[in-house]
């Protein structure tokens, strides 16, 4: 059964990446269920296009790109839904901010997660790939298509920005 073999081969190539894709999606979507849903979608797309997979140098890089794009798409459509649902966005955000953020600030992991998600999209991705997933610069190049120096710059900015925001949040929290 060649088709069966195909599924096996597919699983062998894709399943080891599963955890990474999941963490990436979780970083973007900040929700376990939604992240699982998103990477399920990614796997399905990869599977339906499995014939073309051979022509890609790195399936992992492709999968990471797909996950990133899918998550950003979902975030955008979420935002749109929010805007259309509630005209009074400012009021909603304000109402949403205090209890939710306070709860998140209570544990530093939640705070970090929030601060990372407030970074610009590119910084977020590069920081996650490097500092969480421990990608080499070459691997990040492959995923993002950015140059080596560019990646270093973005990484540096992301790290500094994250620290800056963290200190701000902490002082704000303790000063209160």
């Amino acid at each position: 059964m060649p088709l069966n073999m195909d599924l096996q081969a597919f699983n062998q190539r894709i399943l080891p990446v599963q955890g990474r894709l999941f963490r990436l999606a979780q970083m973007f979507l900040r929700n376990r269920e939604e992240a699982e849903d998103a990477i399920q979608d990614v796997f399905l797309r990869l599977w339906t296009n499995r014939q073309q997979l051979e022509s890609y140098q790195s399936v992992e890089a492709l999968a990471v790109q797909m996950t990133k794009n899918l998550c950003l798409d979902r975030l955008k459509s979420h935002d749109k839904q929010k805007t259309t649902r509630d005209a009074d966005m400012v009021a909603m955000q304000a109402a949403d901010a205090s209890p939710y953020r306070q709860a998140e600030n209570n544990d530093s992991a939640g705070l970090m997660h929030r601060l990372i998600s407030e970074l610009p999209e590119q910084q977020r991705l590069v920081l996650h790939l490097r500092d969480v997933e421990e990608y080499t610069l070459e691997e990040i190049e492959e995923v993002t298509g950015l140059s080596n120096t560019n990646i270093r710059t973005i990484l540096s900015r992301a790290r500094q920005k994250l620290r800056e925001n963290y200190l701000k949040a902490e002082n704000y929290g303790t000063g209160y």
């Binding site: 999941f22 699982e36 399920q40 399905l44 992991a109």
Partner: peptide
Amino acid sequence: AQFGYFANARKEQPSLTFNHELALML
């Protein structure tokens, strides 16, 4: 906090039922 977060985030895995659902879907 920053480094602790990175190290912990690396340990996150999809839930146990996920693989099963994925296999069913594929």
